[in-house]
């Protein structure tokens, strides 16, 4: 009953909007289909090293998606994503190497553990916002590598040395039907499938009742609570979901790199994820791919231009990007949409 009530006016409104924005809708759809096709086909023509880099890129994109849900969705700022990423990675590593669990099964467990961790962390964080929340999450990111190094956990985590993981082989049936797939390529497609699943779930989440509640909190917390939204619940939920997805990304990262060590998950990772979100466009999920490309490739580009000044070149590239397009890839997408729309009209 209530759903019918809610959707009826919404449907007419969206029909009107769809009629007005029909060409741009198509453009968006075409763009996403092209992206998908590229993601599926390009690795077939690449060397293993580049496939590995693309896997990294997808993994960061998943982690950025998670941060986008938190910051873009519920308006909470986090510099502590590297901590959740680390927990996910270690969960996968410990399960695979010490408990001997299949790698695919580690993902849901990593997600679940990180969800609980994030949810619990979200509880005290409720009292904090803005800079204070940034400091709290920052503390989490700083503490995590030190905690992983603790002597107490060494039999599980391997201490400072970390854990080496055996890269999973592609499943047997691919060989029996005559397909030759390398480990890297198999992992790439595995990551891609997981990533697409998470992407669809996230889009639906943000479009759902819960997603709208989160966005209402982001826009005006007091108004949201006056409308009867359970602010603490949705804020902690956003933290939990974001942490859970980051954990899955971390687990995938551990499997792809085949190695975990405390110093891979320092505050620098959290800062990189933050920058990726800004470059991709805060709150725009497809932007995660652009942001992840920035994280993976720009440091390499900077290094290749000048070894000594790589930091400065990285900073200059970053400044140029935020000067030209302060809203990141999202702005580029809108501009492209307008341009194509105009061309379509004039022809």
């Amino acid at each position: 009953m209530t759903t019918a009530h809610e959707t009826a006016p919404a449907a007419t409104a969206s029909k009107k909007a769809a009629a007005a924005a029909a060409p741009s809708m198509n453009i968006a759809r075409v763009a996403s289909l092209i992206t998908l096709a590229l993601l599926l086909l390009v690795p077939l023509f690449l060397k293993n090293f580049y496939i590995f880099q693309m896997t990294q890129w997808l993994i960061y994109a998943i982690a950025l998606l998670a941060l986008n849900i938190l910051t873009g969705g519920s308006g909470q700022f986090s510099l502590g994503q590297s901590a959740f990423y680390a927990v996910g990675a270690y969960t996968a590593a410990v399960m695979m190497e010490i408990l001997g669990v299949n790698y695919a099964l580690t993902l849901p467990v990593a997600g679940l553990i990180c969800f609980v961790f994030g949810f619990l962390f979200g509880l005290p964080a409720l009292r904090l916002s803005g800079v204070y929340l940034a400091l709290a999450t920052f503390a989490l990111a700083v503490a995590m590598p030190q905690v992983l190094k603790l002597h107490f956990f060494e039999s599980w985590t391997g201490g400072v040395q970390g854990l080496v993981i055996i890269k999973p082989d592609p499943p047997e049936f691919l060989k029996t039907i005559g397909l030759k797939v390398s480990q890297d390529m198999w992992l790439y497609y595995f990551t891609l499938v997981v990533g697409i699943g998470i992407y669809i779930a996230s889009v639906n989440l943000l479009a759902s009742r819960s997603g709208r509640a989160m966005m209402a909190i982001r826009d005006n917390q007091i108004a949201a609570s006056a409308m009867g939204i359970d602010v603490p619940l949705y804020k902690t939920l956003a933290f939990g979901i974001s942490a859970g997805i980051t954990g899955v990304a971390g687990a995938l990262g551990a499997i792809a790199v085949a190695f975990v060590a405390p110093d891979s998950y320092t505050i620098q990772l959290a800062i990189a994820l933050f920058l990726g979100m800004v470059i991709g466009g805060v709150g725009w999920l497809p932007g995660s791919l652009a942001g992840a490309a920035f994280i993976v490739f720009v440091p390499n580009i900077a290094e290749s231009i000048s070894k000594g000044l790589s930091g400065a070149i990285f900073g200059i590239i970053l400044i140029v990007i935020i000067f030209l397009v302060p809203h990141g890839a999202r702005q580029v997408a809108y501009m492209a949409q307008h341009l194509i729309g105009k061309i379509g009209k004039s022809s």
Binding site: I271, A312, I322, P326, H327
Partner: peptide, 24 residues
Amino acid sequence: NAPVLVHVAGFIALFAILNSVAGL
């Protein structure tokens, strides 16, 4: 008037530039 988060990205860029230039 760019969003706050963009300013933070600007601070990080400044950080990287100053650090690297001083080092060189």
